[in-house]
Amino acid sequence: MRPIYDAHIHLDVYDNAEQKQIIKDMETYHVEGLITVSRHLLSAKRNLKLAQENKRIYPAFGFHPEQSLTSEQDIENTLYFLMKHQHEMVAVGEVGLPYYLRKQNNTIPIAPYIEILEQFIKIAKRLHKPIVLHAVYEDAPLVCYLLEKHSITKAHFHWFKGDSKTVERLIQNGYFISFTPDVCYKEKIQSLAKRYPISQTMVETDGPWPFEGPFQDHKTHPRMIHQSVEKIAELKHMKLTDLYETIASNTRAFYKL
């Protein structure tokens, strides 16, 4: 194991005992840091507290799109929180569009979510912060358009899924993607890993989201990213130590750690 970062985890969603165990295990598993993303204002406050208690936790603040719309006042309060704690956060996120929510209910309008996303894009640009995105399949081109509209260059599409044309668009724009442990057992994700430039690649768990394959029935833990790195090195025909160094360097540089 070499030093590595979990570029996307919902640390605040774990219970207190699990959080303490993960933080305790970081040294054992050579996890240098956790980029812990937020789902809403309360989530952001929890992640800020976690970061204040441990310098290896790096918070991002945003509004996760796969949930019901909140009030305009709630969004304004969240944006105010971002402004107030801009020097304590490493990025704006997690933000994006509600792909899966709309799959469950196709009557949900997308326009209000686009409006909210654009507000977060604007504040990311204003604060010169990277933005962490939930934008998959058909939603990804629209999100790319919004980023291009506002001249955003530092964008991280976590657990990305999309068509070949959109993949090429992300590559050309210099956007980063990160791979979860499903790269170890899903062929489509492995194909994406082969294609995507290693210079624009990170790794993540998206914990506590559960995984299958060799991770079936195991609580998602940052130690799993080592298996992801090993698989990517195999797919890329790269020396494992070189891949570790590149991915860790990518994460540090992208988030200014």
Rank of each mutant, 00 (worst) to 15 (best):
T36E: 03
L127S: 02
G62S: 05
T241N: 12
A253I: 10
I57A: 01
T180N: 03
Q216F: 11
L257E: 08
I22L: 05
W159V: 05
S199Q: 15
T70G: 06
K129V: 04
A60I: 04
E204A: 06
F215Q: 05
Q73I: 07
M202F: 08
G33C: 09
S178I: 03
M238G: 06
H64K: 09
A193W: 00
R102S: 04
P222E: 01
F215G: 08
E72S: 15
V167G: 04
Q190I: 12
Q67F: 11
P210L: 07
K188F: 12
R169N: 11
K188S: 14
V90L: 09
G207S: 14
M26A: 06
I4S: 00
L192Q: 03
I152M: 13
V13Q: 10
L41V: 04
E53D: 13
E138W: 11
S43R: 03
C144N: 13
E66P: 04
D12Q: 10
L34Y: 04
I9F: 04
H226M: 05
D242G: 04
I9V: 13
S228N: 05
Y244I: 03
I247A: 01
K188Y: 14
I116D: 00
V136C: 07
C184E: 02
K24R: 15
Q19A: 02
R223H: 11
Y100G: 06
H218I: 12
L257H: 12
T246R: 12
E212C: 09
D12T: 05
F211A: 04
D139W: 01
L41F: 09
R126F: 10
N105S: 11
E53K: 15
P59D: 00
Y175E: 05
A91F: 10
L69W: 06
I177Y: 02
A51T: 03
M224S: 06
P181K: 06
P141S: 03
K219N: 09
V183F: 01
Y58K: 13
E245C: 09
S71D: 13
L117R: 12
F120D: 00
H40A: 07
Y29P: 03
E234T: 15
Q172Y: 09
L133K: 04
I57D: 00
D242Q: 15
W209D: 05
I123G: 00
Y137I: 04
F179A: 08
L11A: 04
Y5V: 09
I225Q: 01
H8N: 15
R223A: 14
D25A: 08
A7I: 07
H128Q: 14
A91I: 05
I35P: 00
I75E: 01
S164H: 13
Q52R: 15
D139L: 06
K194F: 04
F157A: 02
F179T: 03
P98I: 02
K45E: 08
